[in-house]
Computed example of a mutant assay.
Amino acid sequence: MRRLVAAALVPLALLASACGGAGGDGQSFDDNSLVIYSGRNKNLVGPLIDKLRTATGLDVQVRYGDSAELAAQILEEGADTRADVFFSQDAGALGALSKHQMLAPAPQELLDRVAARYRSSEGTWVGVSGRSRVIVYDPRTVVAPPKSVFELTDPKWKDKVGWSPTNASFQSFVTALRVVAGEDKARQWLEAMKANGAKSYPNNVEILNAVDDGKLQLGLINHYYWYEKVAENGPNGVPSRLAYLPGGDPGALVNVAGVGMLKGTEHGEAAKKAMDYLLGADAQKYFADTTKEYPLIAGVPTAPGLPPFDSLKGPEVDLSKLDSLEQTITMLQDVGLV
């Protein structure tokens, strides 16, 4: 097991180092606290964590960071990790930890609240909110947006597309691309995009802003960033538009943010209570109303204006098979993108 974890850690640790380190912030935690390692941005879910504290009475402390970096941190810490719960931006990082037996089985009652396709097939993690990959485009310069990510390598889009190779949701998309289209085609697409002048940004927000500012014509992002900006600025304050890709295109991946409980945690009951809250109506309504993601439990409506969740035409891929995050990062490194 130690050899497996060490082998898995290499590409993740390299990425963490390239991005400034995984959790090397000197943060310490009280032994009596429930510790959540969150790959979700503090600005996005910090208010939800505050609501969790109030609703459950738990003493919750949080380490925020990139999902891949935090997965590397947990692998490096091993049995000595202070993480009790891993709250990941995507299924891939959760799957990577599950594959290396770092996550404990979740209570079946919690798993049953979410459709099987949005949770681990082994029962070690469960999705708490859904999102779709989309193409954001500038209608002032783009009459007809592409209908597939494979069209983005066309010379007419040279130097006009933004992406975020270090972002967890992009890395999960590339993992899905590898699973759906095969290793060779995924590598060829990355190389062709790089040769076509795709511009790298640190996150989805900066890609969206670049399109709105006329610096890009197209960008690869998650849907909810656009809807959050529209909610803040009004529809007339956001010039860009979204294209949902049809026909099961890999660029239309429907992924989840999710949670898993660390194996060996000394705060198992508190961890279950936190997971129960995230899969309850209050938190699910927060995802729908505040972050503009899709709630995953029954009875909580989607935010107005979003396409119905069951209308999204993402590729048929088992999210548990996005656990090969290490291979994706190695491919991105080989192509020179991280």
Rank of each mutant, 00 (worst) to 15 (best):
T291G: 11
E326H: 13
D184K: 14
L253S: 03
K185T: 04
W189K: 03
L111R: 15
S324G: 12
V45C: 00
Q284D: 05
K215Y: 07
W157G: 01
S240R: 01
V149H: 12
L44F: 07
R2G: 07
L9E: 09
V142H: 09
I36E: 02
A243Y: 00
I329F: 08
A271E: 07
D213W: 12
Q333A: 06
A298Y: 00
P295S: 08
L103P: 14
E228N: 15
I329V: 15
F150S: 11
N236V: 04
L111F: 01
L52I: 10
K99G: 15
L152E: 05
L208T: 03
R117S: 02
V335Y: 12
E316M: 01
S120M: 06
I36W: 04
D138G: 02
G299T: 12
A283N: 03
P239A: 00
A298M: 10
L12V: 10
G46I: 01
R2L: 15
M275K: 03
K272T: 12
Q188F: 00
A298Q: 14
R119M: 03
G57D: 09
A79R: 11
D334S: 15
L220D: 01
S164G: 04
L58R: 00
Y225V: 07
L332K: 09
A186S: 12
G95D: 04
S320N: 10
I49V: 14
G264K: 01
R53L: 08
N32G: 13
K273R: 04
D154M: 06
I297Y: 08
A195G: 06
A252H: 07
E183L: 07
A298V: 13
F86M: 08
R117L: 03
D318N: 14
M331H: 12
L245K: 01
N32P: 00
K156P: 06
K158D: 02
R187I: 03
N236D: 14
V62A: 10
T328C: 09
